[in-house]
């Protein structure tokens, strides 16, 4: 619903109150509040982080979207911008940070590496995309994405937030407040505890 329609929803508003009273839906005002203050976690992994800083700086100015308040602690962050190559050594820390973020939380995979491994996919220490572990909301292509592309991705995230409904969002459902993702373990290679049985059976079947 655009602003025009929202201000004229069919209810009769007395003329002298027309500019003081607005009628809206609960979903819409909730989403409007959330989309206008998406605070990213202050956390940069690699090259993309530099473009993230550039997008925060004067020329591109992400503050226009309510996204300039970088929070160094996950407890205050709404969005995790995975800006760079996710390595096997780093992923336990990333999963922990994600688990520590309160709901509602979003994950944006910035750049080729975070989306799917990128140019380093073949590397032995590289996780081929952060979506192997975290639920990703928006992928931003590029190596690194320009600040314009990053901002376009942020606008996509806002569009996604606009479509939320209080009835269906996961953080108001019954059960635990957040879903904990099991923290990967550093073994002879990266162990995802969710795949323990699978790893065991394949390792038993393979030849020396």
């Amino acid at each position: 619903m655009d602003n025009e329609k929202l201000n004229l929803p069919g209810y009769e508003i007395p003329e002298d109150l027309e500019h003081a009273v607005a009628i809206t839906t609960l979903d819409r005002i909730y989403n409007w509040g959330q989309r206008s203050s998406v605070w990213p976690l202050m956390f940069g992994l690699a090259c993309c982080a530099i473009e993230m800083i550039a997008a925060q700086a004067a020329r591109y100015d992400m503050a226009r979207f309510g996204m300039e308040v970088m929070r160094p602690t996950p407890r205050q962050a709404d969005m995790m911008l995975v800006s760079g190559t996710v390595t096997k050594k780093m992923i336990p820390a990333i999963v922990r940070l994600y688990n520590q973020m309160p709901e509602p939380k979003y994950v944006v995979a910035m750049g080729a590496c975070a989306s799917g491994g990128g140019p380093f996919k073949e590397g032995y220490n590289v996780v081929a995309g952060v979506d192997k572990f975290l639920p990703v909301d928006v992928y931003i292509p590029g190596c690194p994405p320009t600040p314009q592309a990053l901002i376009a991705g942020m606008i996509k995230l806002q569009e996604k937030i606009d479509k939320q409904s209080l009835k269906t969002v996961r953080w108001y459902k019954k059960g635990a407040d957040t879903v904990e993702i099991p923290v990967p373990i550093l073994g002879p290679d990266l162990i995802d505890p969710r795949r323990n049985a699978e790893i065991k059976s394949i390792a038993a079947a393979q030849k020396g």
């Binding site: 590289v126 081929a128 373990i185 073994g187 505890p193 065991k200 079947a205």
Partner: peptide, 25 residues
């Protein structure tokens, strides 16, 4: 796809008869 050629369908490699539940990091 590189994933299709790996038994774990991922960037992973474990020694034979590896048991992740018994691994002590």
């Amino acid at each position: 796809m590189a994933e299709d050629k790996n038994p774990y369908k991922d960037n992973l490699k474990f020694p034979q008869n590896f048991d992740p539940e018994k691994w002590i990091p």
